[in-house]
Design a protein around this nucleic acid. Structure first.
Lengths: 138, 138
DNA sequence: TGAAAAGCCTGAAGTGGCTTCAGGGTCAAG
DNA sequence: CTTGACCCTGAAGCCACTTCAGGCTTTTCA
C-alpha cells in the first residue's frame, strides 16, 4: 500500500503521515525500487491509533507514551491511568474557563444590539473600561 | 516609564511587550540616549486592552481589528459585532466538543480501576479497539 | 513511442503566540 | 572601578502540522 492509499483510507494527509514517520510515531516503512513508501496493515492500525488518541486531545508526546505502554509485554498500566486522570483534569479546567468566557462574551455582545457608531458603541466602551480597570487580572 | 516597569505594572513579560511592538500592536515608543524604550500612559492602556482581548480568547489579528475599529473616528461597529458573534459561536462549538471529550475520557478511565497488567488493561484494549473501528471518524 | 498527468520524493520554511538563548551595551550604587 | 540590575538585538525553539520549491517515478492515453 502506497502513501496515497494509506492517506485515503485513514483520512490523514500525506504530509502528516510523513511527519509522524519523522517523529518516530510510525515505524519506518519499506520502499519500492522507485523509493516510494510501502505500508502494511500494521501501519494502518498504528496510524488510526495515533489519530484516535489525537481526537482525545492527547499530545504526540502522550501518544508516544501510550504506544510504549501498549507495546510493553507485561508492564503495569499505572502510566496509562495517570495520563488519563491528568487529561480529564485538564479538560475539566478548560471547560470551566470556557464557560466563564461564554458569559463574558455574551454580556459584552449584549451591549450593542443595533449597529451604532463606534464612538457610542457599548462593546468598545466596555472593552476600554475593562482594560483600564484591568479586569483580566482578577 | 521603562519596559521593566511597564511589565511589572501590567503583568506582561518584557519579551512579550517587545513582541507586540514587532507585531505593530503597540506604537513604537521613544528611546533614551542609551537606547532604552520609554513608555507613556497611552502604552499602558493599549497593552491592557490587548491583554484583556487575549483573555477573551481573541487572536492578535482580531485584536488588531478591534484596535482599528476603536481608533476609527466615526466608523460603524458592525465589524465589532460580527467579530464577537463569531467568537461566541466558536467558543460554544469548542465547549460542545470538550463535553463529548469529557464523556469519552471518563468512560475510558472507568475501564481500569485498579492498576493491572498492560496486557489485560481495559483502557489500552479499548484504545486499540476504537482505533480499529475508527470511532474517531464518526 | 512519447508526452502529459498523477503520484511520489526531499529539505526547508511558515503558522501563532509567544519563550528562550547568546552575546552584548547602559547605568546607578558601593 | 567594578558589581549587579537593567536593557538591547537577532536568532532559534516550541507544537502539530502545512506549505512550498524543485525534482523523480509511474501510469495513461493519443
Amino acid at each position: 500500500m502506497q502513501i496515497g492509499e494509506l492517506a485515503r483510507s485513514t483520512g490523514v494527509k500525506i504530509e502528516t503521515i510523513r511527519y509522524y514517520e519523522r517523529e518516530q510515531l510510525l515505524p519506518v516503512p519499506q520502499r519500492t525500487d522507485g523509493n516510494y513508501r510501502l505500508y502494511s496493515p500494521r501501519h494502518v492500525e498504528q496510524l488510526r491509533f495515533i489519530r484516535y488518541c489525537r481526537s482525545l486531545d492527547m499530545s504526540l508526546e502522550e501518544v508516544r507514551l501510550l504506544i510504549e505502554a501498549r507495546d510493553a509485554p507485561a508492564g503495569s498500566c499505572l502510566t496509562v491511568n495517570a495520563l488519563l486522570d491528568e487529561k480529564i483534569a485538564e479538560v475539566d479546567a478548560r471547560v470551566n474557563e470556557l464557560h466563564k468566557l461564554q458569559d463574558q462574551l455574551r454580556q459584552l455582545r449584549g451591549l450593542c444590539q443595533q449597529p451604532d457608531e463606534v464612538k457610542t458603541c457599548g462593546i468598545l466602551m466596555e472593552l476600554n473600561r475593562s482594560a483600564r480597570i484591568d479586569k483580566a487580572q482578577i
